[in-house]
Design a protein around this nucleic acid. Structure first.
Lengths: 111, 111
DNA sequence: TGAAGTTACATGCTCGCGCATTCAATGTCA
DNA sequence: TGACATTGAATGCGCGAGCATGTAACTTCA
């Protein structure tokens, strides 16, 4: 059942919005984290803990999203090893476009 | 939740029995198919339909299992394109060893 | 303060997966 | 029977995932 679901999520998100599933999930996680205050968030330390993705996979997913202009890395001045992440406006927009697709597929498979 | 489960299945099966999850699933599927009569079964046509694995992935998984001596390919005389598959005795043994691990992980994650 | 440990990431490497293609064996139909 | 379509399976290719490692930037403690 999971295979069906995640496969269709992957396909629908990719064909309709140009996003892989884990890319969508990263957008969603960042968005959820930043929803109250318009701040950024430290990458691995927090996002990795929140997601089912290895540190390396996450790093590369962020690179892809950054290249696509959906997420921005920003240096952290307190700890210069760390990266702050935030959605760009395009990123938030793309995520909001894709949400209904994501939800619809889930709803369909759990009905 | 699925990520936790499948990840632990993968790790446990691999470390304790030297099997990947989809390898285990292939053994299980063949075994289930052959349980009543001691016959073989046609590869892609039937096994692929039964599993969540692409034809190419299945083909390569079988190759790995064959190399490990757990599954045997046998020519089909009626249709010489097709391959019959069957568990070797080592294959059946390995599967039966691994079953409790598989079941235990599932049970744990659904409790 | 400086040597040793730890942390936040990035990167090299390998692996399994799916897609598209290939190839031989079968089926179909005039 | 021969040309064309279809089917069963293998394989080339690229991608995303995890593991291990590399590398700066902290932290700790004598």
């Amino acid at each position: 059942m999971y295979h069906d679901t995640s496969c269709e999520l992957e396909n629908e998100l990719q064909s309709r919005h140009g996003l892989g599933l884990s890319e969508f999930e990263v957008l969603q996680a960042i968005s959820g984290y930043c929803s109250d205050r318009e701040t950024e968030k430290i990458l691995m330390k927090d996002l990795e803990a929140e997601m089912y993705l290895s540190q390396s996979a996450l790093s590369r997913t962020i690179t892809r999203l950054e290249r696509a202009g959906l997420v921005a890395r920003a240096a952290c001045e307190i700890d210069r090893r760390a990266n702050f992440l935030q959605l760009t406006s395009a990123g938030r927009e793309r995520w909001e476009e894709a949400r209904p697709t994501h939800k619809a597929v889930l709803r369909k498979h759990f009905a």
